[in-house]
Every structure is written in C-alpha cells, then in structure tokens.
Design a protein around this nucleic acid. Structure first.
Lengths: 246, 246
DNA sequence: AAGTGGTCTAGACCACCCT
DNA sequence: GGGTGGTCTAGACCACTTT
C-alpha cells in the first residue's frame, strides 16, 4: 500500500510532512532520477491539501537540489551531481562551540604600517597609506588551530581597543565603529602548505597541508574594510558537503 | 525620496522586484544588521501586493542568509558571518565547460581486486570480496588537473565497458546499470599534499598543495556503490563562496 | 484543448512576543 | 490585546508544452 496520510495531529506542518514523503520515495528509488513526480494538483488532491501547500513542499525539495520544475511539462527528479557539492565552512568560533571546544585568541601583532602593493589594491586605497595590520592565532582547547592575518584601513580618530582585538570573531572588531559594520564578504578557498614561519606558530612542520581562506570584507556602499586570510591546519579541519535535511 | 514602485509592465515577478529593493537597502546600509524590516503587512500595503507575495520576497532573502524571521517579533537583518561561508565545489566537467576548457579523461588502471580493509568498510562489504578499482586522470586543455581513484563492488554479470570508463563523470559510469543510479553522495573535503606518485601523474612536485574530495556514493535504499577520492591540483583550483544573487 | 508549473490574491487561523 | 511571522485555503490568470 502506498497510501500515505498526513498526520493532522502532529505539530509538523503539512508541507514539511509531504516533503518528507516525497524525499523518501526518491531515496528509496521509488522515484528515480529523470522521473516526473505527480502534478501539484494531483498531490494536493491526494493528500487533502491546497495546491499552494503542495507547491511549498515541492519547493523545499527544489531548494535541496532533488527536483526541478519545468513550466508546462512537470516536476522531475534530478540526476544528482555526485562529483561535486556545497560545503559549509563555518565561522571558527561557531565551529568550535558546536564541538564543545573552548576557544582562545592569542594576539601576535598589531601594527600601523604603510600599505604595500597587494593590501592597497585589495582594499582599494593608495599605496603607502596607513593600514592596521593584525596577526592572531585562534586556539581550541589550548592548541593553535588557525592563523589569522588581516589588513584594514587605519582611521586615526577611531582607535581599536586591545579588548576588541583579543577576542571574538571579525565582526566584533567593529563594535566601536557602528558605521563600518560588515555587510558582505568575498571569500576564496585555496589549498596551501605551511611556510616555516606559519608552521612554527601553528605547532606543525613546514610543508604541512592547510586550507587558506582569503577574506575581503565590505561595509555598506561596497566600502572595503578588511582584507586578510586565515590559515586552517589541514590535520584539524575537514568539511562535509551539506546533506539533505532529515 | 524612498518611494520605490514596482514595475508592473516588467516581466520580472513582483516578489523578485521587491526582494531586489530590500537587498539594495541592506547593501547600501539603509537597513543595518540587527534592524527590523517593515512587517509583511506593511510591505504588502506599501507596494500594492498581497501579503503572500511580500512574504515570498522576504523568503528569498531569508534563503540568501540576509534576513531571519522571528515569530511574534518581526524580520531582522542578519549580522553577516564574515569569517565563513558556503562554497560550491562543482563537478569537474561542468566547471571546465563553464570556463571553456576542453576536457579529456585518461584511464590509468581498471582492475578487479580483493577489497582491502578500508574500501571494504567504506563500501559496507566483506573484506576480500571482489571490487573494481579505477584510476583516472582528468585533463583540461591537455594538462592533468585531477586524479580520480574509485572502488566499486564488482558485479560479474554487469561488466563495465571501457567506453563508459573513459569518458564523462561518475554518474555516467552507471548508464548500463539502471538499477544502481546514484541518488546521494557524502563528500568530505580535506587539504593535502601530493605524494611522489600523485605528483608524477599530475605533473607537479611532491609536496605540492592539493584538495582531496572523498566521495561515498549511494544508490536507492542506501546501497553504497562507489567509494573513492579525487585529488585537485591546488595551483589550479580555488573556490569562491556563493555570493548574493544580483 | 488540456495539462502543467509560475505567479498572485484576499482572505483565514494560529503561536508567539510585547506592552 | 494588538502586532508579528508561520501556515493554509480556494480560488484566479498566465506562459508554456503536449496531445
């Protein structure tokens, strides 16, 4: 019998229950890649829902990459892209918190320097202009895990406090500068190996594998406020592709 | 004047236009992180829409990670997570195609071997059972870019054809075995350095940085059909976080 | 002509939060 | 109690595809 019924007593919304049913049929092979699923109208009738509610269930699975709608033809099960996927690289502190690891930030350097060619270009300022350079090690359970290096335009009348630098994530660097709140970031992930200097700071050997995440952070009106990169120890970090919800 | 109007003549849907307006206000700083946006009812009235349409616009921005709804309180602009993000690591052939690079698959080895400890465990079969081992180099414009190594359970009566192995992506390996179509994959991304053997196959030096993407591929009913990993040259691949749509 | 998904409306009830 | 988002309904029109 394939007579699934929605549980009207449950607290889970109807659209969510229907999505789960359809997801199950795909995972079980009852609906195969390339197959057309029943029309929105047919699903609504079968499960005693309005079309908009059936549609919402379908749209969940479309967002998950399981289904694709084609106007005038129907809704089809996708051929999954099994050679690639979407990876979440979370904020360091958030990641550690979810794993129950205590974090500490060790401040290595805070300097006002003249912007070299690359930082000046990345931040969109003139070469030689003063920038704040920041170097930190992010530790988890007392062990160095991430090396963080950042440049940001130096505003003479808005000094950063050590208290802000020593703790927390990048966003919190700006608690004293409300007008420069980050709005958006461009992130680039590369594979790298540790230099001798980086290796020493992270307690590893030179040549060890690592992730590098370059950050270019924008405030409102596309104003660039930070450029830098974070080096993640390759032996301590790996990332899983986002799996389908329940 | 902040009197935006929707273009009722345009082909772009109303909910999409409203989403673009709100996204613009966030990017420009008019709506700052932590701010509450107007209620769904207020937006619907202001722009001459029904509440459900205004709601759809908002839900777009929620999906983009710009807004968060709180029942009973309102909808708020998110503090962007600027130290981490979501990265799309696309299928090799798809990635190359979008960059206009011609791809070629070089088959290095196809062997039927007895499953060692790790492959057997990953595939959920008994150690010593026969598995098909596959080794390929994926080339772009004649240059080796990715090393691909896979194990899959060997079915005596369903021989794989060389034609299937030599071309295309993993999904296409199963064109002759319709019952084993991939439905789902678990992917793990790590940072690594090339071994001497890998370096030679990829035309690099040993110790060069690289990404490693481990794949465990499932067909219907959670049947495991492939386990393997792909080594991406670190000097040729980098990944950007998904940016906000237009 | 019939069927499909994409969009949109004008209501409704609920759970939750704030005052 | 009034405002908010979350869910749901029963219609409607449209563009598109297939028959």
């Amino acid at each position: 019998m394939d007579e699934e019924r929605l549980d009207t007593e449950a607290f889970t919304p109807a659209y969510y229950q229907l999505a789960r049913i359809l997801r199950g049929k795909i995972m079980a092979g009852e609906l195969q890649p390339g197959d057309r699923i029943p029309s929105e109208e047919a699903l609504a009738t079968k499960y005693g829902l309005s079309r908009m509610t059936a549609r919402k269930a379908i749209s969940l699975l479309v967002d998950e990459g399981l289904l694709r709608g084609e106007r005038g033809r129907g809704t089809f099960v996708i051929e999954p892209k099994v050679d690639g996927g979407v990876f979440l690289i979370p904020d360091f502190h958030e990641e550690m918190r979810t794993q129950g690891v205590s974090t500490h930030v060790r401040l290595l350097a805070v300097k006002v320097v003249k912007a070299g060619k690359v930082p000046a270009q990345k931040l969109g300022i003139r070469r030689g202009k003063q920038v704040l350079y920041l170097e930190r090690v992010l530790e988890g359970d007392g062990e160095p895990l991430v090396l963080d290096r950042k440049y940001m335009p130096y505003e003479k009348d808005q000094p950063l406090l050590e208290a802000e630098l020593g703790h927390g994530s990048t966003t919190e660097l700006f608690s004293s500068r409300p007008g420069l709140k980050p709005v958006r970031a461009e992130l680039t992930l590369t594979a790298t190996v540790l230099t001798a200097g980086e290796a020493e700071l992270l307690g590893r050997k030179a040549g060890s594998p690592a992730f590098c995440m370059e950050q270019l952070i924008f405030a409102a009106n596309d104003l660039r406020v930070i450029w830098g990169w974070m080096i993640y120890r390759g032996d301590k970090f790996s990332f899983s592709s986002l799996s389908r919800p329940l």
